[in-house]
Amino acid sequence: MNADFPRILTLLRKEKGISQKEAAGELGISQALLSHYEKGIRECGLDFLVRTADFYHVSCDYLLGRSPDRMGATLTVEDIPEPEQAAGKENTFRGSILPVLNKKLISNSLNVLFDLLQRANNKSLTGEVSSFLMLAVYRMFRVVYAAHPKNQDAMFTVPRRVADQYAGAMMQVHSANAQALVGGQPLDGQEPLRSSEELALTTDVINERYPMCASSLFNLVQNSEDKMTLQPK
């Protein structure tokens, strides 16, 4: 089989809130055999894989770790909803406006950043910046996810004890790569930024080019630097 199957098999059972004995009964095997499958000691056959997919209402591709989508869908740009559509009722006032405010500051500032990346027209730079940002969200998601003791670590392939350090290290790598690329330094298999003309900015240009997002960006910069200052206010 593969390394993902035992982890996902265990995750689905625990998220369903049933014991190994109950799951084994539903799947038509012994508890001992299911335990071996969940520990990766033994490999299952195709019949068991299909029964498991039907029982947990997921795809075989998801069980095998070939797709992060439970139905096995391959994500395309067209499949990803716009942030406003994905938010739905999540922007509804729920007693505290702070999460909504911060979300808008970050989302609007990202709009500016990714527009600049598009103007730079450098696939390597876009990849490095995107990877850095994804890892930042990943780290904080794992922190919040771990707050509830019943949330299953099996959702992740990297163990919690090292995930934050590994992610932090990779963020440093992607940050260094991005800085090298904008500095015109070629990296193995990556093209440096050839021209920065499209990235020339002033506060007036930002306000003119991004009238809906400029204020958010300026506030994000100020808030971030307020947190970094060494001088008490």
Rank of each mutant, 00 (worst) to 15 (best):
Ala3Arg: 14
Arg7His: 10
Ile8Tyr: 03
Leu9Asn: 01
Thr10Met: 09
Leu11His: 07
Arg13Gly: 00
Lys16Phe: 00
Ile18Gln: 09
Gln20Cys: 08
Gly25Gln: 11
Gly28Glu: 06
Ile29Tyr: 02
Glu38Arg: 06
Gly40Ile: 10
Leu49Arg: 07
Ala53Arg: 05
Val58Asn: 02
Asp69Leu: 10
Arg70Pro: 00
Ala73Pro: 08
Ala73Phe: 11
Glu78Asp: 15
Glu82Pro: 04
Ala87Ile: 13
Ala87Gln: 13
Lys89His: 06
Lys89Met: 05
Glu90Ala: 13
Ser96Pro: 05
Ile97Leu: 10
Pro99Gln: 15
Val100Lys: 01
Leu110Ser: 09
Phe114His: 03
Asp115Phe: 04
Leu125Glu: 00
Val129Cys: 08
Leu133Met: 04
Met134Phe: 01
Tyr138Arg: 10
Met140Asn: 14
Tyr145Met: 13
Ala147Tyr: 11
Pro149Gly: 05
Asn151Phe: 10
Thr157Pro: 01
Arg161Val: 15
Val162Phe: 05
Ala167Lys: 04
Gly168His: 15
Met170Trp: 07
Met171Ser: 06
Ala180Cys: 10
Val182Leu: 07
Gly183Trp: 07
Gly184Asp: 02
Gly189Glu: 12
Pro192Trp: 03
Glu198Lys: 15
Glu198Arg: 14
Leu199Phe: 00
Thr203Arg: 06
Ile206Asp: 03
Tyr210Asn: 11
Met212Ser: 12
Cys213Lys: 05
Asn223Phe: 11
Ser224Ala: 12
Pro232Tyr: 00
